[in-house]
Design a protein around this nucleic acid. Sequence first.
DNA 1: AAATCGGGGCT
DNA 2: AGCCCAGATTT
Length: 333
Amino acid sequence: MSSSFSQSVVSWYDLHGRKNLPWQGGNPYHVWLSEIMLQQTQVVKVLDYFQRFIKSIPNLKELAAADEQQVMALWSGLGYYNRARNLHRTAQICVEQHQGELPADLTALMALPGIGRSTAAAILSLAYEQAEPIMDGNVKRVFARHFLVAGEPNKSATLKRFWQLAEQHRETARPAAYTQGLMDLGATLCTKHKPQCDRCPVSNSCQALASDVVAAYPQKKKPVRAREVELHCLLFERGGQLALLQRTSKGIWASMWFLPTFDSQQALSEVTTSARKIFTLTHRLTHRLLQIHVYLANDWEVDEPVDWVSRQQLVKWPHPKALNHILEQHDNH
DNA sequence: AAATCGGGGCT
DNA sequence: AGCCCAGATTT
């Protein structure tokens, strides 16, 4: 039984929702890939990456068989690189355990790496028309206002309340239209700034609007101080080619190619005697403020596998944006 | 329950 | 300079 809230959202979606996003159409592979790319990443940013990805790797079985480096390269610049590794692993698990398909089951989906409850529900509702509720930033904002949910959105108590409300307002008749409509509502009308309540299909039952406190919901999360980290990087070129090392599978820039990096200048001095600092640049990540000290050297005692890469080849070596920034800075010197 | 994982676009 | 974004995972 669907609620009147959900039915109003569906009716609004039919008139005003987004229907031309490239991952719409119910293809489970497309839905899944887009959901992973869209985790903490804006739609406009994802559009190009999505098109490039499905053009290069058009289905789940080809993804399972693809080279991890190719997958990582297609992800270069999107951030949160563990998403790409998990995507690849999940494709392989689906081939081994689920007949090459994404399972149409909440528990089975959530058991796959990189798929939590919300992404699993998005796949189930958008691709398989199952009435599973999602819970992303848009939905949290709509719910916080409409149902007057206080507390910081990502606190466990607040999250629990959001999910409870979501379960109470499932849409059984048209799950895909409801899921998409709820997100579209948050993205186009129930926006953070200047929400257009006069056009909202559920404004008559919105508790925040009734109390004229829409702007105060959802509650702001307290800002977290980014910790400062110093990195000492070696810019080592030989015959027009740059030395790159692959980073570990954990931590910042997981599995990406980057300059040889050391925790201290002393550690750097143990592999080269000629290192000379040429500049320092700051690079901001969400929870880190990186001070990247860049050095040039004539000698280098290498004890790890190095790839020598020309500037033209660099696009094929999955690397974070920070590497581009360093090279631009170097060119300007 | 809190910390950890990027990067960009907006104000 | 914050703030936020179609969150998941680890500690």
